[in-house]
């Protein structure tokens, strides 16, 4: 039987189900910081894996579109229909587009996209890299004259960072479309009035932070998925743990980043 492959000493395996002691948390944090640093050191030096980057963009972005689209469509519709009775009481039905629009563009769109991508892509990255690590495919890559960190990790992190914002923009569009539909189910409004209603209330200060934060969401999803997968321990259980903890941690990270985004926006006087 094979000798025990060394688990890198800096990155112990953590099962998300068990509460982690503080010291483990900090070692994990340090290891992840090191991983991030390596991404920035290696990611922007040749050689660049363009083809693999495109493949990953396709897998992470395009193939997540149906899932993200459906969720944000439902959220837009449900939000509109739920909000309507209250707004009718206040005689403020004309405010529905603004409220739903603001909610979707500022929070729901980014968060839902982030969570869905974390669930779909984060787990698949974690599992894929985990199983590649376990079955020595990562070593094989290195032996084949390929830097696996660049080929596997950098491309995936970059793809997630670039695709999540685009997914979010499309999710916003779908969500607003659903809102428009929801309003027209029980009342009538024209597209022009609807867009004017939303845009009349929006400012750059409200739209841009919402777009900018999605880059960080994507980065976090890619980084955590890759970190967990890349450092998966031997065995099929290690793969499962990598996938699971990638989803758990990146979902949590999305909320934390969202909180930070609110703080930063407030500090810059944008809210």
């Amino acid at each position: 039987m094979p000798p025990v492959l060394p688990t890198p000493p800096c990155c112990p395996l953590i099962s998300p189900a068990t509460p982690m002691p503080a010291s483990t948390f900090f070692t994990e944090f340090r290891a992840m910081t090191g991983f991030t640093g390596r991404f920035f050191r290696e990611g922007f030096r040749p050689r660049y894996e363009w083809l693999e980057l495109l493949n990953q963009c396709y897998a992470i972005g395009y193939q997540s579109l149906p899932l993200v689209g459906i969720t944000s469509f439902i959220m837009g519709l449900v939000l509109t229909l739920r909000l309507r009775p209250t707004m009718v009481q206040f005689g403020a039905t004309s405010w529905i587009p603004v409220m739903v629009g603001l909610t979707i563009i500022q929070e729901l769109g980014p968060i839902i996209t982030g969570l869905m991508v974390a669930g779909k892509v984060g787990s698949s990255i974690g599992a894929e890299l985990g199983s590649m690590r376990v079955s020595e495919q990562i070593d094989a890559m290195e032996v084949s004259g390929t830097n696996p960190f660049k080929y596997l990790v950098v491309t995936r992190i970059l793809a997630a960072t670039l695709m999540v914002p685009i997914l979010t923009l499309l999710a916003d569009a779908v969500g607003l479309g659903a809102c428009y539909l929801g309003i027209n189910l029980q009342g009538v409004t024209s597209v022009a009035l609807f867009t004017n209603n939303i845009l009349g209330r929006l400012t750059f200060g409200e739209v841009l932070p919402a777009v900018v934060k999605t880059f960080f969401f994507g980065f976090a999803i890619g980084l955590i998925g890759c970190y967990k997968g890349y450092h998966a321990s031997k065995g099929t259980q290690g793969v499962g743990v990598a996938a699971n903890s990638a989803v758990v941690l990146s979902s949590l990270m999305i909320f934390l980043l969202d909180l930070v985004a609110v703080g930063v926006s407030t500090a810059f006087g944008l809210i």
């Binding site: 083809l51 495109l54 493949n55 396709y58 395009y62 685009i166 845009l199 929006l202």
Partner: peptide, 28 residues
């Protein structure tokens, strides 16, 4: 795995996203 049709779809997807952003920014 990598096929031209994938890349075309990816390009359309990215363009659609950027179009949304551009439309919002221009209207605003």
């Amino acid at each position: 795995m990598p096929t031209a049709s994938h890349h075309i779809r990816l390009a359309l997807f990215v363009l659609a996203g950027l179009a949304c952003l551009a439309a919002t920014l221009v209207l605003l």
